[in-house]
Design a protein around this nucleic acid. Structure first.
Length: 560
DNA sequence: CTGGGGTCCT
DNA sequence: AGGACCC
């Protein structure tokens, strides 16, 4: 297995950038539909608006926030353009496009710095958080540019706080220059805007990123960060989730301290008295390490490293939530949709990363279970191998069938979901994990870093000048170019074309692998959006408002 | 009316 | 396998 994380040296002073793409889903959707640029747009999943653009936010006067019901949003802003976002593929691709561009820019910049100082290029770890945030540790690159001289003695963008540490100030000045230039590059290259926060820890960088929005950046100089933090809600600290919040609240109520914990200062007052406080909080949380981490965060202390995410995800899953699913027919139908989406993504993943999953997880939730579901892991049916490693599209229906059979037996044996039993499911999900490299990847001496492997592979493929038709349309980077790998060992090339049917529409597929890929991709997309419930949700919401016509944009969009 | 994803730790 | 966290 390749190394997917690089440890930074234990430095006393670091320069960390937090990037956050502005209203990411909305921006990606509008980029693909330029005519919507000046319209109020929301991205809809089921009955919820998950993101909106700034036009919608100002038009609805702040009433269209994250996770507002579509009906509520339409009351505030009837002209809202709703775009279905239940298929994350375009957002996942755009996210990969951005992080790939970031890596490429940093590598270029590192090479330049290395050339000047005649040293090896400084490495910048990049860590993704969700699809729209990236942490970058630019310490080594910034230090290298300072040593080389010529880096301006000047901050770029907003500056918050102060510091007496001259070296840190210098480091963050250079980091703010890097951040600004990298942002300009990303905006020009991807047409997506983003904010940046720059500081000496992940925590403060992340707090800084939200200080000037959108499309701007802020340096957080940390000398008085502790005082600033005390005024915030503890929930603003990354790592202080609602579980932690609830446990502390429960404890305070149980112990007659009804003050609550409105601010970080409140938390420190309860547990900030040294070892004893750590132990008490550790008992409440059931984890002393976590307690220590939380209390450090409250004081502005965060030594968390930026861990490089690597290129390949560790798990891939497809899920579907529904209000009610009570028959085997319904289970089967929903399962097949999600499995088809999963297999399609595994096919692309196999092309990109020469690997296949060994574990299949099946997750489900019954009505009344609240938010927690159950998941079971079983060996991935071996039929997936020819889909991922040999890229045999005619093997797709068999793989889907086999995974469906396995998933149904898991549901039957572990959840009692079977014919003749009554049940009501509100969530069905299938996932793939525990990836193993395919044989062609082994024993070739390239065991260090997967990105190096792809850069080399991409060059070889690029010289063949095969046009990319995969799902990474925007990417012009090595990773994107390598999307379609010609495999001489594929049996599909040597055997005469057997009948291949589209697993979605069941029509006969002609043409080569490439054309089949295109058809399946297109068919998959339309099948998944057509049966999506958000269309009905928006229709109902509009109807209840008395608006007769569905926005023409919206109806068009849902067909795609 | 809580999406559709991900990560890591225990 | 579940539970915490993140978006």
């Amino acid at each position: 297995m390749s190394i997917r994380r690089k440890r930074q040296r234990p430095v006393t002073s670091r320069a960390i950038i937090a990037f956050d793409l502005d209203c990411f889903y909305a921006s990606v959707a509008i980029r693909a539909r330029p005519h919507l640029k000046d319209k109020p747009v929301v991205i809809v999943q089921k009955h919820l608006c998950v993101t909106s653009n700034y036009v919608a936010r100002s038009r609805a006067k702040g009433a269209v926030q994250k996770m507002t019901p579509v009906s509520h949003a339409l009351q505030k802003c009837p002209e809202l353009v709703c775009i279905d976002g239940s298929d994350l593929t375009p957002f996942r691709e755009a996210s990969l496009e951005v992080v790939t561009a970031i890596r490429a820019w940093l590598a270029d910049r590192a090479r330049e710095a290395a050339a000047m100082s005649n040293t090896k290029p400084p490495f910048c770890a990049c860590q993704r958080l969700g699809f729209d945030e990236v942490f970058i540790d630019v310490t080594e690159l910034a230090l290298s540019e300072i040593e080389n001289g010529g880096a301006p003695f000047l901050f770029r963008g907003h500056v918050f706080g102060r510091t007496d540490d001259d070296e840190l100030r210098r480091l963050l000045m250079v980091a703010s220059q890097l951040s600004h230039q990298l942002r300009e590059y990303l905006i020009a290259k991807t047409q997506l805007t983003l904010c940046a926060g720059i500081s000496h820890s992940k925590q403060l960088a992340k707090l800084a990123v939200n200080m000037n929005k959108p499309n701007d950046q802020t340096v957080f100089l940390p000398d008085q960060s502790a005082e600033y933090l005390k005024t915030l809600s503890p929930r603003a600290l990354q790592g202080f989730g609602h579980g932690t919040h609830d446990k502390i609240i429960t404890w305070t109520k149980h112990n007659g301290k009804h003050e609550g914990i409105e601010t970080v200062a409140d938390v420190l007052q309860l547990f900030g008295d040294g070892q004893d406080g750590i132990r008490r909080l550790g008992t409440i949380l059931g984890n002393e390490q976590h307690a220590l981490h939380i209390l450090n965060l409250c004081r502005g202390v965060d030594h968390t490293e930026v861990l490089d995410s690597g290129d390949a995800p560790k798990s891939i899953s497809a899920e579907d939530s529904c209000r009610s699913c009570t028959t085997m027919e319904d289970v089967s139908r929903r399962l097949v949709v999600q499995i088809t989406r999963l297999v399609s993504r595994l096919r692309s993943d196999g092309q990109l990363f020469s690997r296949r999953p060994r574990a299949l997880s099946v997750s489900y939730r019954f009505r009344g279970d609240g938010f927690v579901g159950t998941s079971r892991s079983v060996p991935m049916p071996t039929e997936i191998v020819s889909v991922c490693c040999s890229q045999q599209n005619k093997a797709i229906p068999k793989a889907i069938e086999s995974i469906k059979k396995t998933a149904l037996s898991v549901l039957k044996e572990h959840a009692g979901v079977q014919e003749g039993r009554t049940f009501d499911l509100t969530l069905l999900a299938v996932g793939a994990s525990n990836f193993s490299d395919s044989d062609s990847f082994k024993g070739n001496g390239l065991t260090t870093d997967i990105s190096e492997f792809f850069i080399g592979k991409a060059k070889r493929i690029d010289s063949g000048k095969k046009k990319s038709s995969g799902t990474l349309h925007h990417s012009q980077t090595p990773t994107g170019v390598s999307n379609h790998v010609q495999r001489t060992d594929s049996k599909e090339r040597s055997t005469p074309e057997a009948e291949v049917r589209c697993p979605i529409c069941n029509s006969k597929l002609s043409g080569d692998n490439l054309m089949q890929n295109n058809h399946i991709d297109k068919c998959l997309k339309s099948s998944c959006t057509k049966r999506d419930k958000s269309a009905g949700s928006v229709k109902r919401a509009r109807k209840s408002l008395g608006t007769r016509t569905l926005d023409s944009y919206f109806s068009k969009r849902l067909q795609r």
